[in-house]
Structures are given as structure tokens and as C-alpha cells.
Write a protein that binds this DNA or RNA. Structure first.
Length: 592
RNA sequence: GGACCCGUAGCUCAGCUGGAUAGAGCGUUGCCCUCCGAAGGCAAAGGUCGUGCGUUCGAAUCGCGCCGGGUCCGCCA
């Protein structure tokens, strides 16, 4: 990083303020200067940046904040980038930067391209981001979609902010549900062979009944027949489970995962690794995890108290193998083994997390549906126990998406045929609209997804609004013959002086800071909001050009001013693309 | 009974991890387009931030108690 101009103006100023504060108050504890914040003030009239340094330092320094603010302002005024610094309010120091310092971001943006905003904040920490992890028991539906988009965007965001990210999908291919799936696929296989049995006869003959009756297993049955003939069901009649379970299960899970991968690809969601629950258990990871915890004295045999409130009908006290999750803040200890000796889902997931740790991850982030909220504490406890607190564990919960059409709720019913698969959704509104819209709400807030609204071409559709801004940028640049960024970076930027132009540049200069804040908060939706603000500034400038011809981007009679404005337009397009890239949305060249 | 999430303008939602007079879009109201950049633009009205205490120089933000909504709660995943 040998840029003479800092890429993150706020971080650079934070360092300056901290240094000035140390110079002013030599005895100040180091952590006070480090905690100093430099942020854009809520009210733009207060300047470009404001710092709370004087208020933080007041108590340890034993001086009133206003006095410190006055002294600090004087020092900051001497900085070359600062036009003015003034104490204000309860002890803020407001800073106004010189226009030249703000404009200086334009060549930086043009040089860095879409890498503008990349940060080292994450320090290369190896983080495992697990998302989707839908059970391989059927095609993906809209319920999976939000987690997929949020997880993918969060992984992009953390990578941009300097974390070393592994994108992981945990395949739940070991539990009772997969067994039920195998039975269901076996039924379709019997049908393919022309079995005389009726569905109900078959359903009654298997444990738990026929749980997955969807049509999507018909091709699976055909595929099993194509591979095995009637070998697994001689005479088209059910054979003993042990004769067919493994091949049927493996083939079915394989085909389901293939379908899921295709759905994910259609949504543009990527994963680096697919970790199989079954493979982990077979490799002995569960036993390893249990032994590890036992070695720490965290495993015991015991009987849990009955849950309060409504009791399950078949409740009876039972001795179980338990993990001392309460030692790490959980509400109760948690069972690890089912009565047949196999691992509970939780136990297998502990194995999964031991595997993540063993692969060298220092941080684990999950994206889960809100219905898994009750599972967070125990898993956090497990990771703490496994890593002796060295590996962090966080969960981003996503709330339900209500699908609407023209303001009316779309009923989600498999039977009525109104069940919305992920594929249907993408085909109807397009991948980019799906992704962008899924990021226009905080993950843990419920969201309405109106199929008509998200493809509407109007101001109140953020997808359109942001894409339109980029298309307008591109349109202007095309009209000017697409000058190369290097040429634009040489433009004489003092031609950019209108308040609307400066406001746009300020907004662009906030991109690196936005990336860092969003990454720290694990909140990719902030990128969507930021891009709407950039688009609003740009459209505002465009609109001014409609009324005031001297503000148009291209002016035949003013080649130097035109070049400066083209530089601004090109920088705007770059920042929008950089943000869309985090969201996994493709920028458009023109609106159609 | 308990745990977790949520409660901000008529509606849908932001609010940069404790800062200054709480924001945006929609909707409402009022202006603006014969034409050169109107799939629109400008402006206004609209909030005791569910509620009551507390911590703090300072609270929508942190803590506790209520009220309201959601999710979950022993060998399902």
C-alpha cells in the first residue's frame, strides 16, 4: 500500500486524531486514544467528520471536554487535509476537509478499481462461514433462499474486509430424515419397476410411514432402476432393508445434492467445501470429540429434569450421556447419544465443529434460520469447550420471508401446487433481483418479498434504482468513448465544485469505511443501503443537470471540466460495481 | 414455566455498536414537464423511538421489570 493518498479517509483521520490527542495529553492511557472514533456527523452541516476524542479523554485527563476539544481542534487545523476544525456541542471536534483532499479519492478509486474498499481489518483470520446446509431431502425452496444469499454475501464481505474465508455447506446425510428419504426413493424405484403394491400398502410397511411423497423423487426411482435393474427389489417387491439401503441412500443423497448444487449455482451462491455428516462420523470424528470433552471432565451420565410447561406425553426420566453445556452458559446440559448409541444431531454437529477447528479455523460464523435460535447457546458452548475459548463462534439468524404477489400473500402449500421452489423464484424475477432484495432488510427482521414489486421499474424498487444509476454511468461513459481509467485519473479535479458533486464524492469516499463497519457487524444488508445512498446522490446530480445545463457530465465546450466529471462518473460506477460484487449481483450496462 | 429475536412516522424499514435538532422510500398535501437528460423533479406536513425505572457528561442504542408480536424448548434435523 504505497498510495500517497489514504484509501480510507476516516481510518487515516482516526490515526491523526489519536496522535494529536497523545501529543496533547502525554500521560493519557493508550487505550483511550485507540478508542477514539472519527465518523461522519449525522448532520452534514457539522462538517465532514466528527470525533469524540475530547469526551473520551476528559475523565482520565481530569480536564473538561470543551477545553480539550479546543486544544485538539487547534492541532488538527494544522493538518494539510483539514480546512477547519472546531469544538462543538458537548465536546465534539468537527472537521471539515479541504475539497482537494476529498476529491483526491477519485484517482484512488480509479486506480484501485473494484478492489477499492478492500481492507485488512480481518487480519487474515481464518473464518469458516457455514450457510445453506439444507437437508438433502428435496429441492430448495424460498425458505432456504435468504440464508443462502445472506451467507454468500457475508462471506464476500468478510473476504473483502481481510478475513481468510472458507465457505462451507454441512450436509446432513446421517440422520433419521435421510433414512426416511431412502424409503421414499425406494418406493419410487418400486413404482419404476411396476410394483403391484399401492402407496398406502407400502407406507404401512415401513417405519415412520412414507414421509417424502413429492414428485421430485420419481426421476430418482428411474435412475436407480437404470443403474440396478430389479437387483434391489426382485420381482418389483420390497427386499430386506439391509439389501438395498446403502446404495439407494447414497444414490438418492447424491442426486439431491446435485439438484441443490444446481439451484445454488442458479442463484450464484458458492461454497468451497461440502462436509458430509456421515463421512465425519465414519472417520471417527464424533468419538474424537467426545473423548476430547471427556478428557476435560465435561461428559457425564445423568438424568435431565423434565422441561417446564407442557410436558411431552411420553416423558420419562432417562439416563443419558450428557455434555456440561451449563458450564459455558447454556440453560441445561445436552445429550450426546441416542439410546441406540449413535450420536444425536448435536453430537454430530460437535464433530463437525471439531473438524472446522482441526482444519485451522480461528473463527466460525453460521447463518441459520430463526427457528434454530434455541440451538445457538449449546453450540457456542461446545466450540468454547473444544477450543478452550480460542475459537470464536457467532450466528447470524435470518427471519422468515413472506412471499407476496401484488400485495397478497402467496400460500405455501405443496398440495395446492403453490409451493415456491427457489428455481421458480429465480425464473420469475431473476437472480439479481432475488439477491438484492434479500439484502434490503436486516437478516433478523421479517421480510416481505413482493414478486411484482421487485421487478417494478420505479424509484421505490431499490434493485432498479441502483442498477439504473450504474446504467446511467455507463451510458455517459460510452457516449464519451469509454476513456481509460488511467487517463481520467489525470483529470484536473478542481472543476468539481458543485455541492451535489462534492456530496457524491464524499459518499464514494465512505465506501471503505462502510465495508469495515458492515463486516464487523456481520451485516451485509448495509451494503445494499449504502448503494441506495450512492445511487440517490448520483441521480440527484443527474437531475440537477437537467435543469442546469452547466452541470451536465459531457460539455462539448469544456473538455477539462468534462474530463473531471467523467472521472467522477467512472468512480461512481466502480464503487457501485464493488458493492454489487459483495452482494453477488451483476451490474447492468443499460436498462431494458 | 424458561430461553432467544423483535417493537422507531399512516405503511415498509434504516439508524454506522453510547453522541449533537432520530432518517429514507411509499402514502398524504402543495408546486413543476410545449423543447434540449421527466420510466420524473422540488417542497411541506407527519415520531413522548412499546412502557417504567436505572447506568452515563449523554440512551432509539447498554442493564433490569412490565406490555405486545415471533421462534424454540429430552434420543427431529
Amino acid at each position: 500500500m504505497s498510495h500517497p493518498v489514504p484509501e480510507n479517509l476516516f481510518a487515516a483521520m482516526q490515526a491523526e486524531v489519536a496522535a494529536a490527542l497523545r501529543g496533547l495529553l502525554p500521560g493519557l492511557p493508550e487505550d483511550v486514544a485507540a478508542r477514539v472514533q472519527v465518523e461522519p456527523p449525522r448532520d452534514p452541516a457539522h462538517g465532514d467528520m466528527a470525533t469524540n476524542a475530547a469526551m473520551l479523554a476528559a475523565k482520565p485527563a481530569g480536564r473538561p471536554p470543551a477545553a480539550i476539544a479546543a486544544d485538539l481542534a487547534e492541532r488538527l487545523r494544522a493538518l494539510p487535509a483539514v480546512a477547519d476544525a472546531a469544538p462543538a456541542g458537548p465536546g465534539f471536534v468537527n472537521l471539515r476537509l479541504k475539497d482537494a483532499a476529498i476529491r483526491g479519492q477519485i484517482p484512488v478509486i480509479l486506480q484501485r478499481g473494484e478492489a477499492y474498499g478492500d481492507s485488512r481489518l480481518g487480519g487474515g483470520v481464518r473464518v469458516d462461514v457455514e450457510y445453506v446446509s439444507a437437508n438433502p431431502t428435496g429441492p430448495m425452496h424460498v425458505g432456504h433462499c435468504r440464508g443462502a444469499v445472506v451467507g454468500d454475501a457475508l462471506a464476500n464481505l468478510l473476504a473483502k474486509a481481510g478475513w481468510a474465508v472458507t465457505r462451507e455447506y454441512y450436509v446432513n446425510d446421517a440422520g433419521a430424515q435421510v433414512l426416511a428419504l431412502a424409503y421414499a426413493a425406494y418406493w419410487r424405484y418400486l413404482q419404476a419397476l411396476g410394483t403391484p403394491l399401492t402407496e398406502e400398502e407400502y407406507a404401512q410397511s415401513i417405519p415412520g410411514g412414507l414421509q417424502y411423497r413429492g414428485d421430485y423423487l420419481i426421476p430418482v426411482g428411474e435412475a436407480i432402476k437404470a443403474r440396478f435393474g430389479d437387483e434391489l427389489a426382485p420381482g418389483a417387491m420390497p427386499a430386506p432393508v439391509t439389501d438395498w439401503l446403502e446404495p439407494v441412500r447414497d444414490m438418492t443423497v447424491g442426486l439431491m445434492m446435485q439438484a441443490i448444487r444446481e439451484d445454488l449455482a442458479a442463484l450464484g451462491v458458492r461454497h468451497d467445501v461440502f462436509v458430509s455428516e456421515r463421512a465425519l462420523v465414519e472417520a471417527g470424528m464424533l468419538d474424537r470429540a467426545e473423548a476430547l470433552l471427556a478428557g476435560k471432565g465435561l461428559i457425564y451420565r445423568g438424568v435431565l429434569d423434565a422441561p417446564k410447561g407442557k410436558l411431552p406425553e411420553d416423558w420419562e426420566p432417562r439416563e443419558q450421556v450428557l455434555f456440561r453445556a451449563t458450564r459455558f452458559g447454556d440453560d441445561t446440559d445436552r445429550p450426546l447419544r441416542k439410546s441406540d448409541g449413535s450420536g444425536t444431531y448435536f453430537a454430530n454437529d460437535i464433530a463437525n465443529h471439531l473438524d472446522k477447528i482441526a482444519r485451522g479455523h480461528e473463527a466460525i460464523v453460521h447463518v441459520w434460520g430463526a427457528d434454530h435460535g434455541g440451538y445457538v447457546k449449546r453450540m457456542k458452548a461446545a466450540v468454547q469447550a473444544l477450543s478452550d475459548g480460542a475459537v470464536s463462534f457467532e450466528v447470524v439468524l435470518t427471519q422468515i420471508v413472506h412471499v407476496l404477489r401484488g400485495g397478497q400473500p402467496v400460500r405455501m402449500s405443496k398440495r395446492a401446487g403453490t409451493y415456491v421452489t427457489l428455481r421458480d423464484l429465480i425464473e420469475e424475477v431473476g437472480r439479481d433481483a432475488v439477491r438484492f432484495t434479500m439484502l434490503t432488510r436486516k437478516a433478523d427482521a421479517q421480510m416481505e418479498f413482493d414478486l411484482d414489486r421487485v421487478i417494478e421499474q420505479s424509484r421505490d424498487n431499490p434493485v432498479f434504482y441502483v442498477q439504473y444509476a450504474h446504467a446511467r454511468c455507463r451510458s455517459v461513459l460510452r457516449q464519451a468513448g469509454d476513456p481509460p481509467a488511467a487517463a481520467l485519473a489525470e483529470a484536473e479535479l478542481s472543476h468539481l465544485s458543485d455541492p451535489a458533486e462534492m456530496a457524491l464524492i464524499r459518499k464514494l469516499a465512505a465506501w471503505p469505511r462502510t465495508v469495515e463497519a458492515a463486516a464487523l457487524a456481520r451485516e451485509p444488508h448495509r451494503i445494499a443501503f449504502y448503494l441506495q445512498e450512492v445511487a440517490a446522490e448520483f441521480h440527484g446530480l443527474w437531475n440537477k443537470g437537467r435543469e442546469d445545463a452547466t452541470l451536465r457530465f459531457i460539455r462539448e465546450d469544456e473538455p477539462e471540466a468534462t474530463r473531471a466529471r467523467l472521472a467522477l462518473v467512472a468512480a461512481t460506477a466502480i464503487v457501485i460495481r464493488s458493492g454489487l460484487a459483495v452482494m453477488g449481483v451483476a451490474p447492468v450496462e443499460e436498462m431494458r
